[in-house]
């Protein structure tokens, strides 16, 4: 399945802003986070197609993940 991954703030360093990746069926978000060398503790906001989701969920083909470190406040 093809997944678009949007990274923000410090998570972009050494990884880029938008990644287009392909993963085998059954891959859960936690696997993708590990594949990107991101520590789970550095993920504060996790969205699938703009809706809050969890690490153990499985994205579908064509989904977009947005991943933010602990940031924010305005």
């Amino acid at each position: 399945m093809k997944v678009t991954i949007k990274l923000f703030a410090t998570l972009r360093i050494g990884r880029g802003k938008i990644l287009k990746k392909e993963y085998p069926e059954g891959t859960i978000i936690r696997d993708i986070i590990r594949d990107l060398n991101i520590y789970e503790k550095d993920v504060a906001i996790l969205l699938k197609n703009g809706i809050s989701t969890k690490m153990d969920k499985e994205p579908a083909d064509g989904d977009t993940l947005s991943i933010f470190p602990p940031i924010g406040g305005g």
């Binding site: 703030a9 410090t10 406040g73």
Partner: peptide, 25 residues
């Protein structure tokens, strides 16, 4: 030690919310 006050706000200020809020629609 808090992610927002210890890392996020010092590094990016409040403007970091633009992408966060936009990604939520």
């Amino acid at each position: 030690e808090n992610g927002v006050t210890g890392q996020g706000l010092p590094a990016y200020g409040t403007a970091v919310l633009v992408n966060i809020i936009n990604e939520h629609g």
